[in-house]
């Protein structure tokens, strides 16, 4: 797949001199879902705002669909839809008129059928004539999404789309995102819910202090960085790890019936074979083996710890 967004050495220093982006280079593939993770103040919103034209970069370039976002801003911006982090809506407007306005701003001719489809997809059709102030927070967020989709963008930026959204709506949101992906829309989303990234992203980027620490295929990332645990269930509980087996990687469960071996999938040798033969040599009989992989969350926390160190 070709790259639809090319961010090259992007820098942003705010008026007060604060450097929110310190040279970010990132290529986003057409049709993928990229999740951007990073602690508060990492620069996620700044990155999105700079790509979308809300803030001006102090260095670097951005191309969307091959169009430079400064010199060819009309073509570039026309491809982008943006759902901002803050719920910014005019309280007295009706849902349908604010969505129609968004479509018009992007120069697309009136098309009520297209808007109906979008509003139905987001379960907002029944609310189309309601004033925005009469909607719940989750509905307002969906109105923002409807506005962003009103001009049928090819690239959609979702800045924390599920912040403050209940579990059910979060699932709905994931389905909407999956549906958009199926339509060929490229999606970049930021989130603090790692299970969200784990559930829907194709690739994961991690930002901290205005720098992109890594971008990688989600599964590869988890395989590469994930620590796995092997649980060895014993027929008879033991009081302590036999002396011949003692190592940092091995612990005994509280009830003494399971040995837990932690290993790194990145390591050349996992040490599993040796462990198993040592277990047998120690005269322990096993009933079962089980492996589990660390979640993205643990990977993320580890990564930030490394960065801080």
């Amino acid at each position: 797949m070709p790259d639809i967004v090319e961010i090259n050495d992007l820098r942003k220093a705010y008026a007060d001199g604060f450097e929110a982006l310190k040279g970010v280079t990132l290529k986003i593939k057409q049709g993928e879902i990229l999740a951007l993770l990073g602690p508060n103040g990492a620069g996620k919103t700044t990155l999105i705002s700079t790509v979308c034209g809300i803030t001006t970069a102090t260095g670097g370039t951005v191309k969307v669909g091959g169009h430079d976002t400064i010199t060819d801003y009309r073509a570039a911006r026309g491809m982008i839809g943006l759902v901002p982090q803050e719920i910014n809506l005019e309280p007295f407007e009706k849902v349908i008129s604010t969505v129609r306005f968004s479509r018009g701003l992007f120069g697309k001719p009136k098309d009520d059928a297209a808007l109906e489809k979008i509003l139905r997809q987001l379960s907002l059709w029944d609310k189309r004539d309601s004033q925005i102030r009469a909607l719940s927070g989750g509905m307002k967020r969906r109105v923002l999404i409807a506005k962003a989709l009103a001009h049928e963008p090819r690239v959609l930026f979702l800045d924390e789309p599920t912040a403050g959204v209940d579990v059910e709506l979060r699932r709905d949101m994931w389905e909407i995102v999956a549906g958009l992906k199926a339509d060929g829309v490229t999606i970049i989303l930021t989130t603090h819910y790692i299970e969200e990234a784990e559930a829907i992203a194709d690739r994961i980027g991690v930002i901290a202090h205005g720098e992109l620490l890594l971008v990688e295929d989600k599964n590869k990332l988890m395989a590469r960085m994930g620590k796995k645990q092997l649980q060895v269930h014993l027929t008879k509980p033991i009081d302590a790890v036999p002396a011949s087996l003692v190592s940092d990687a091995l612990t005994l469960s509280e009830d003494g019936s399971t040995l837990i071996y932690t290993y790194d999938t990145r390591a050349e040798r996992t040490g599993i074979t040796k462990l198993l033969s040592d277990v047998a040599a120690a005269g322990l009989v096993l009933t079962d083996l089980e492996t589990s992989q660390s979640s993205l969350e643990e990977i993320f926390v580890d990564l930030l710890k490394e960065d801080a160190a």
């Binding site: 705002s49 979308c52 034209g53 809300i54 801003y73 009309r74 073509a75 570039a76 911006r77 026309g78 982008i80 943006l82 901002p84 803050e86 910014n88 809506l89 005019e90 309280p91 968004s102 701003l105 992007f106 120069g107 506005k147």
Partner: peptide, 17 residues
């Protein structure tokens, strides 16, 4: 001023206009 105040100005800034 109103779009600036309530934040909807982002839409004007990110539109192809």
């Amino acid at each position: 001023y109103f779009p600036k105040f309530i934040g909807t100005v982002f839409e004007l800034l990110s539109a192809p206009i």
